[in-house]
Design a protein around this nucleic acid. Structure first.
Lengths: 334, 334
DNA sequence: TGCGCCGCATGAACCGATTCATCATATGGA
DNA sequence: TCCATATGATGAATCGGTTCATGCGGCGCA
């Protein structure tokens, strides 16, 4: 209960508080003998510095925040794991907020962050870009994850390439009536994936068609719904290949479709993200793998770098390349 | 950049800092006119209180921590969601730490928490109980989640009942050669689930057998391994019913087994937790549902209650009852 | 011997909000 | 009219580190 204070350490060691503080923060600035005494006193008292006081004086918290858009999607938790690791390595704390079940969503959580005075936040922009500028005006650094922007540092994945690879693969295995299931068109990633998909169709020539279906959220349940809708179509109008914009939808669709149709013969499915459950499905899911963990890791490192750099800041952008992982949901031989 | 301080507000409103502080924290103590002026000044300046300074003075951080044992298991993220909600409702921040990929594991993260001076932590004790006592001696409150203990408040689920229900169900659908796949025996939950399982076998009489398999971790990959081992057995020695101690293992096993055997005819599988993917599997998984979100929610509320209560503290314990959810992995009719 | 410099310790001021003893003013009752 | 009481404002002290201007002793060099 009774916190031992830095001044207690100073008294026991017979030095000033300044020296103790220096020992803690710039050990090179204290004499070896002094260091020995201070270190002994700290040991003896079991002293732990009070982070709050340090933060107050330093004007920074050594903590960064991350808003998880959808905690039920392993993609985001993997992102968080990567970010957490980077934070830990740099001695930062990672404060996670979840906007999972909430109507007003993200911007509310950014508010939470606002008066927790974090040094910076990692943001995965959802449907609309929340008022990041306001945060930044308040002195909080911002790095975008899984999204590019000229105004902020960002780490992202080439979604055009991902959409293209997924679609081209379906065409290569002989599918002609394709369907793209995406999220809200306002989200940049979705637009990119769609445009990659279209590019692949265009390149294939005239006999390949592509229909697009867009939903607000991309969950397992939504996948089930869309699967049911496909089954309700007359067979001739059913797609024979589907590109889903995330694995959850793909798995939901597959569950419903596998009851009535043969996968991949009647209908082949490609997901996106390569969450663990994609490989673990009874029919393993072909999917576009993103370097998810790395994405979170690099994002956090970038943020921390921005926090610690001294000179003028230049926004930097890292773009990873996705990788198509072929499994049984599109190919018998896989 | 230049933070507006409380004293700026006071100056603009023409009142003392004490009054501004009172307006913020005990509005009933300030005159209506004063309140109006202060509120106007806050508005005009866009003032946001500095949480760090408040924490320092108050001696508390209004933040609680939660160590996620395995972030790749949706069970734990759901727990976190519940806890996050409770924290949010009470105006607390939830600091998440992940011990996912780390050899030394949990205790290290509790250290991180130690000098972040949190008011309390929520702990899901893993294999060994980390040095919680030390934390507590430092003034940090502790509540155990998913585990009972006399020395701490706790929220848990009746694991004996869960193991029993799962096993009895297999027996009821006609299975006789049962297998229990659990985690480390040192973990209390595992012991409870096993003993529930044994009780069900005992109650069924002589012709039901139970073999036990224990692994350090319970992941999809481990499930695959065990599935392969089962397939390698001579048919007569294969179990015809499996109780898995979490859904991940169950899903992993099912993936391997469904290739060679008929589920549920040759072998029926029951999981544990009822994560979303259990219902979403191509063969939906029968499982023991835990009120996971509620568990996190109640745990956090309990912790916050302990933090805000004034009198003597009495440890309290909430024990939820699990619920068996029957699906196709054990029953054709389901 | 004297001067300048270096290394290191010192401790008061400070970060920004909260608290509380104190005081001013108003109200009511005798 | 006077005193007791209530209401509410005040501002200095405080929380626990960090910083920095200041000072001191020792060493090298001329």
């Amino acid at each position: 209960m009774a916190q031992t204070r830095l001044s207690d350490v100073a008294r026991l060691a017979g030095v000033s508080t300044g020296s103790v503080s220096n020992f803690l923060n710039r050990p090179d600035r204290v004499n070896a003998e002094t260091a020995r005494r201070v270190s002994g006193a700290i040991e003896r008292l079991g002293y732990v510095p009070n982070t709050t006081a340090r933060q107050l004086r330093r004007g920074q918290s050594e903590a960064i925040g991350f808003v998880i858009t959808d905690i039920s999607n392993p993609f985001f938790t993997t992102l968080a794991t990567g970010a957490a690791q980077a934070a830990r390595e740099a001695g930062y704390a990672l404060l996670l907020a979840t906007s999972a079940d909430d109507e007003s969503g993200q911007s509310q959580y950014l508010d939470v962050f606002e008066n927790r005075n974090l040094d910076g936040v990692l943001v995965t922009p959802a449907r609309t870009t929340p008022n990041l500028d306001k945060l930044r005006a308040n002195g909080t650094k911002v790095v975008l994850v899984d999204r590019e922007s000229d105004d902020y540092c960002s780490v992202s994945v080439d979604d055009v390439a991902g959409g293209l690879a997924a679609t081209k693969h379906l065409i290569d295995v002989g599918k002609r009536r394709l369907m793209f299931v995406g999220g809200e068109r306002r989200i940049q990633q979705m637009r990119d994936r769609v445009s990659g998909s279209r590019a692949a169709v265009l390149a294939a020539g005239g006999d390949v068609t592509l229909v697009e279906e867009h939903r607000e959220t991309l969950s397992i349940d939504v996948g089930r719904e869309i699967g049911a809708e496909i089954l309700a179509l007359p067979p001739a109008r059913r797609p024979d290949g589907v590109v889903a914009a995330n694995d959850l939808v793909a798995l939901g669709m597959m569950q419903v479709l596998s009851g009535a149709l043969s996968i991949p013969d009647d209908i082949a499915i490609v997901g996106y993200d390569d969450i663990d459950f994609a490989a673990a499905s009874l029919i393993p899911l072909t999917t576009v793998r993103q370097p998810t963990r790395e994405l979170g890791y690099r994002g956090a490192r970038m943020l921390i770098a921005e926090l610690t750099e001294t000179g003028e800041h230049e926004h930097s952008h890292v773009v990873f390349q996705p990788e198509l992982v072929v499994r049984a949901s599109t190919s018998r031989s896989a």
